[in-house]
Design a binder for these strands. Structure first.
Lengths: 331, 331
DNA sequence: CTGTTAGCGCTTTCAG
DNA sequence: CTGAAAGCGCTAACAG
């Protein structure tokens, strides 16, 4: 069932059939009707590979996220997929386990498929480089790591972290543990900056020993958090992402530490469990699904006009105060 | 940068280059080395569309799930993606919002791309029909709705529901509310069957008024659950999926009902929050990521040998008893 | 308005 | 072991 089959069936040539189905170019109404009817009747499905080969571009947008099991990435992907589908584009989703090598492999795959663009939560600059060099539009979401100018959708990490930290400082905390990721990602850097800025604002010195940087794949993250608790006796913890918040929460529970009486906890990136546990977790919330949607829109806009200047959308996160934060003990 | 460019660079013809890169057919070692080196040096990326067009099949497996925001589907997708990537296949992920029409559109898209196979959590039989009719292998995960024989990975819903219900019955509950989905899906049907079977085993009659079937997109699910609580005064609730469990939990909390003293709750499909809330939610756990992985493996196996008979893998779920279940009040 | 023609980049006989 | 040739299904000039 190819275009020529269809054309023969309707008594036209393949070119006319092509025009009728794509809506580009002139086709007489009767011919067009016969073609459309035949396509319907025969269940004609155009061959996407042939079309992509000819047009040198497909409608498949590449998406790379670290790990779908993390709700943050899953929601991002959900937003992207939704916006893409509305515009009749498809999402090819690849995971990268936060590994530069896998990200690069994904980029190569997208190049091979003539993807018109790629959306990713980058773990390195190499993949973006490769794609942009080959003329593929890239949108970075959540983090910005590219060496070259490119569209991005991020949130104001510094402002979010500053709000969270200020909240703790105002409650009277003076020893706040910062649980971060051991990377050079802009997310983490921004959150660290906000943490320090809030301390500066309040004229409270930061004890460097309270800064913990956990490896992305660290199997002993909870042990590390436990040691921080034991060694440095922070009265509050600021976990810079939802996974670290979950791990911190586990450690606190295991050690029987009551929140907020004995210790306070603030997270970054609101996920459902944080509102369900008792006490609820105070958190810097970000519009994750919306970020995905916007990234897709940015990409589509660029597909329309490739020469538009790179735009970086910076969304504002929101501090949601719940029961996990309160005054430090004996304060 | 096409194959011919590469061939010219290495002083061979395109055919030889093709053989060298694909590993099929004879190529003299020196020629092969020159070709491989040139490919490396020039960063040659083969054009997937051209290859798919020629071979009439691609390495892109279609995956359709209802909604990535639900952790169940996200984890399924994570398992599928992982297994696929290990075998050097890619995942094209489309959502369908549990709508037959969108599922069908997704199927057409996969047809257009020459997908070697499709994995889905089906919402109807039409999409599978279409695909199978066109010779595309289909694996159903979680639910079985196809009219035609096809591979599937499911869990033993009846056994799981029976275990959960028996657990409640043994605790002394006699009025158990069943929160199900208003569909003809095998998941729900199996869970209902298990619910009834457990009652039969225990010789306890089922009061039909305790059976609530909520529409998949119902905006007022929580109201409906609230009414069931008020009208029928069940002493326990069995929520047939993670979303219903979450909604039931919200209603119980909002109404200030303590678990398990005033009411017991059992869920189906373990998700992280269930172990984090207090009391933890007793639940029938299923190996979600593993189900995804197996579905992918089944698909790959069929790609190898298209004539193998359809196999249905039935995994066993596991009842995880936590604090949300106990004896009924005044019992 | 329509058909002819010429490829898009790759793989695969088939001769050599 | 290698190259020439044909063609996968579609689209885009271009000439009618």
């Amino acid at each position: 069932m190819t275009l020529s089959d269809l054309a023969r069936e309707a008594g036209t040539s393949a070119s006319t059939a092509s025009r009728a189905l794509s809506g580009r170019g002139y086709v007489s109404p009767p011919a067009r009707d016969r073609l459309l009817a035949a396509a319907e009747r025969l269940g004609y499905v155009p061959n996407a590979s042939a079309r992509a080969l000819k047009q040198r571009t497909s409608r498949v947008v590449g998406v790379v996220v670290s790990d779908l099991r993390n709700q943050f990435y899953a929601r991002l992907a959900a937003g992207i997929e939704q916006a893409l589908r509305e515009a009749d584009f498809q999402m090819m989703l690849l995971g990268d386990n936060s590994e530069g090598a896998e990200e690069l492999a994904a980029a190569r795959t997208f190049l091979a498929m003539n993807a018109p663009g790629v959306i990713m939560t980058p773990v390195g600059a190499a993949a973006t480089d490769l794609l942009v060099r080959h003329g593929v539009a890239v949108v970075e979401v959540d983090r910005q790591l590219a060496d070259v100018p490119c569209d991005a959708v991020v949130i104001d990490n510094e402002a979010g972290a500053r709000a969270a930290t200020t909240h703790l400082l105002e409650l009277g905390h003076r020893r706040i543990g910062l649980l971060g990721v051991d990377t050079e990602w802009t997310t983490d850097a921004g959150r660290r900056r906000g943490f320090h800025a809030a301390h500066d604002d309040a004229d409270v010195p930061v004890d460097e020993r309270l800064l913990l940087r956990v490896g992305v794949h660290a199997a002993d993250a909870e042990d590390q958090i436990g040691r921080l608790l034991y060694d440095e006796a922070p009265t509050a913890l600021f976990a810079a992402n939802n996974l670290l918040a979950e791990q911190a929460w586990n450690v606190l529970r295991r050690n029987g530490l009551r929140m907020p009486a004995e210790i306070s906890l603030v997270g970054f990136d609101d996920v459902p469990w944080m509102a369900m546990v008792d006490p609820g977790i105070t958190v810097v919330a970000q519009p994750t699904v919306e970020m995905g949607r916007r990234a897709a829109q940015l990409l589509l806009a660029r597909a329309e006009s490739p020469e538009r200047p790179a735009t970086v959308e910076i969304l504002t996160p929101q501090l949601v105060v719940r029961g996990s934060t309160g005054a430090p003990p004996t304060a």
